[in-house]
Write a protein that binds this DNA or RNA. Structure first.
Length: 575
RNA sequence: UCGGAGGUGGUGUAAUUGGUAACACAGCUGGUUCUGGUCCAGUCGUUGGGGGUUCAAGUCCUCCCCUCCGAGCCA
């Protein structure tokens, strides 16, 4: 289904509900809003969106939802989408994140319309607008401290208290504001506040702070400014300056919309007034998408870094081997709505599997090796057998794999006392070694504790290539690697980073449900062809899953995702 | 306590605007198969609750319940 990678249909997950020939297409509430605006000629039919990250961290899959929404809408409606860095708080931001975010965007396959924009590019204009507000008695300079202002704001259902500075004459306010800009006051000594309504039910309308004093060098404007606009005083203006028509953000900003509108309604805008629409942010089971918690995972050493393969960051998923197209397919599939919801990780993984199933080469690798000795194999002989590279794609061709009398097989593929429905190797049973021969187990050698350390078998020379001339069948086909030709590699196997499906949902610290066994590293034996994979390339280890060669060290693999595993389900059910 | 946004299968999203509740994932049955993969077929819901309008309600009215967000000089 999600195999349309041509981009022609990009972004529209739209389940067509058309009954014969009917062209009806269902669209989400945001797209219908866009379509209404186009139909009504609200912006002269123009559509412009933007993706506005703050450069203070790495992008994660929650951002991907917003990215594909914004860029997708621009594509679908022949509009444009800007990348704008919302850099109004120099305390937390850093230039390095700017580059990282642009890289991640590129990897995701979206292209902003033109160069990146920065809210800081608009500081002068935004400042002038503040003065215009003051001149009209719509803003004032407050010298009360943060705690006092907060207390005066009152509470839900409680009245607010007006600041003694609220009725400050415009000339005085203007003078003070200019002094703020000129650095006459200490950090935190004064703020500029909008004069709106201290009794509003909406807390964001109780005279919100527009400017604060911060003597922190900014990554772009350096020390040119000591006052910085807040999000609310910069965001809508930036949208307006750029010509944004639809400003999409997440649900926690619904209460800000009144303020967004208030600001824009009181300014002399260069063009049409953009409108803000909110959608639910993404949640995924067994996953956390809060920047704060992600940071504590990194800082607490629970993972190796922001790009650890277990992280839900774009970089992490990239290292893990998730194709960007799978991420987009997932995002398109989950849709966009106003309901707070939590998507199952399994859905994401299914998109990863579907994509990788058609694109990845098949290889053999043994994760937990057990020696298999073929007792009737001609001493020292090696034959090259032909193996299919990708049954989903005949054009991928075949490869030669060396087969010999001493092989590695998977420990799970042999059992002395097998349970019912176990189809694999067991004493006396014949199985197929993929692309090789039929073998029959004759003897198991155990150590003093009774663990099987080697299996002996005989092979049928007539079955070369995996077919018996007499047509007899086997119940299992197993992967293998010739011992003397095996390539050694470290392979990371991953389990959920959080054991709890909804980490932190019970009010607990999400870190308490971090899975201590989220990564298991094994020394695997791989077929020779696996020495040649490119960094970042994902291949299927047959019967085991998809594995990505590490970006920095191609001799290390990450299990991207396992294959669907019927046998595992059968065992799970028994427990 | 006040304001706002929401509630459709195990999960997410739909339902041509009042007309047979659909698609995908997960699960389960069975079939196919040189991957217990892929693929194919089948199966899984009285739309948060009550009442009302109507030939007909997930969609309209009404009362109730539940969940989430909001009192940063963060975004």
């Amino acid at each position: 289904m999600p195999d349309d990678t041509t981009g022609s249909n990009a972004g529209s997950s739209n389940a067509s509900t058309s009954n014969e020939g009917d062209e009806y297409q269902s669209v989400d509430f945001i797209r219908s809003r866009v379509e209404e605006d186009i139909a009504a000629g609200t912006y002269g039919g123009r559509v412009q969106t933007r993706f506005p990250p703050e450069p203070n961290g790495f992008l994660h899959i929650g951002h991907a939802k917003s990215i594909f929404l914004n860029f997708g809408i621009a594509e679908e409606y022949d509009g444009s989408c800007f990348l704008r860095f919302d850099d109004t708080n120099p305390e937390t931001e850093d230039i390095s994140y700017v580059a990282a975010i642009e890289e991640d965007l590129e990897w995701l396959g979206v292209t902003p319309s033109g160069p990146a924009r920065f809210a800081s590019d608009y500081f002068e204009q935004i400042y002038e607008w503040a003065e215009s507000l003051i001149e009209r008695g719509l803003a004032y300079v407050d010298d009360q401290d943060a705690e006092t202002i907060s207390t005066q704001r009152g509470g839900f259902g409680q009245p607010g208290i007006e600041s003694p500075n609220r009725d400050q004459p415009a000339e005085e306010a203007l003078g003070l504001f200019r002094q703020m800009r000129d650095g006459a006051f200490e950090d935190g000594a004064r703020v500029l506040r909008a004069r709106i309504d201290m009794q509003s039910d909406n807390m964001w309308l109780r005279d919100p702070v527009l400017y604060r004093i911060r003597r922190v060098p900014h990554h772009r404007t350096d020390d040119r400014w000591v006052i910085y606009p807040t999000y609310d005083w910069a965001h809508g203006q930036s949208d307006a300056i750029e010509g944004t028509t639809h400003s999409l953000c997440t649900l926690e900003f619904v209460d800000h919309r009144a303020l967004y509108d208030w600001c824009l309604d009181h300014l002399d805008l260069p063009g049409d007034k953009p409108n803000q629409n909110e959608f639910a942010r993404l949640n995924i089971t067994h996953t956390v998408l809060s920047k704060r918690v992600l940071r504590s995972l990194v800082e607490g050493g629970h993972v190796d870094g922001w790009d650890d393969a277990r992280m839900p960051t774009i970089r992490g998923m990239r290292r893990r081997g998730y194709p960007a197209t799978a991420i987009r397919g997932f995002v398109d599939r989950i849709g966009v709505a106003k309901t707070n919801s939590t998507v199952e990780v399994e859905l994401l993984e299914s998109f990863v599997r579907t994509e990788l199933n058609s694109s990845s080469l098949r290889r053999m690798g043994v994760l937990k090796p057990l020696k298999l000795v073929i007792t009737n194999w001609p001493e020292g002989e090696v034959v090259m057998v032909d193996a299919i590279n990708n049954p989903e794609n005949p054009d991928a061709g075949t490869r030669q794999v060396p087969f010999s009398g001493e092989l590695w097989i998977e420990q799970d593929d042999f059992m002395l006392d097998p349970p019912k429905k176990y189809f694999r190797l067991t004493p006396g049973r014949e199985v197929r070694l993929r692309a090789g021969f039929f073998v029959t187990a004759t003897e198991a050698i155990t150590d003093d504790d009774g663990n099987v350390i080697e299996v002996r078998c005989t092979y049928d020379p007539e079955t070369r290539g995996g077919q018996a001339p007499d047509g007899r069948k086997v119940k299992a086909t197993m992967h293998w690697v010739s011992a003397s030709h095996a390539v050694d590699a470290d392979v990371h196997l991953y389990d959920r980073l959080f054991s709890d499906s909804h980490p932190g949902a019970d009010g607990e610290d999400p870190l308490t449900s971090v899975n201590p066994d989220s990564r298991e590293t094994v020394s695997a034996k791989l077929e020779p062809a696996l020495a040649d994979v490119e960094p970042g390339q994902v291949v299927q280890f047959e019967r085991l899953g998809y594995f990505a060669a590490d970006l920095d060290d191609a001799g290390t693999f990450h299990r991207t995702v396992g294959l669907r595993d019927e046998w595992a389900n059968i065992q799970k059910r028994k427990k």
